[in-house]
């Protein structure tokens, strides 16, 4: 399962990078979303999968799954929400003000200042 998850995470990364390299703003944002999903799965896999019960002591189990990746991922999920939100708003404002979402045309240059 772990090997399979690594491949899936790699695939998510590849898709995310492909989207981020495109010229359309919205695809770039969706790409970042995919990237964080890939990262979360990867992190979880690194701790070992299904090595025990849920990391709650009330279960009184002999072994628990690794709680550290879970704590890290929980932080990352919420942060990536914030990042997505701010990307969306930046994209929307940029589109509104500049009238294009083509990254080729959005490039800034010193002459504009």
């Amino acid at each position: 399962m772990e090997i399979l998850m690594c491949i899936v995470a790699g695939m998510l990364f590849a898709a995310a990078v492909y989207l981020m390299l495109s010229k359309s703003l919205l695809r770039i944002i969706i790409g970042t979303g995919l990237l964080s999903h890939g990262t979360h799965l990867m992190l979880l896999t690194m701790g070992g999968l299904k090595t025990g019960t849920v990391p709650v002591l009330g279960e009184h189990a002999a072994s628990y799954t690794d709680p550290i990746p879970q704590a890290l991922i929980l932080t990352a999920i919420v942060i990536s929400f914030g990042v997505t939100a701010i990307f969306l708003v930046i994209a929307y404002r940029a589109y509104q003000d500049l009238g294009t979402d083509n990254m080729d045309q959005l490039r800034g240059s010193e002459a504009d200042d």
Binding site: C6, A9, G10, F13, A14, A16, V17, G38, T45, M46
Partner: peptide, 14 residues
């Protein structure tokens, strides 16, 4: 590039 990143990540993960 995307495939390169994906493969690298997979290899590192494994």
């Amino acid at each position: 590039i995307a495939a390169g990143v994906g493969i690298t990540v997979t290899l590192i993960g494994i």
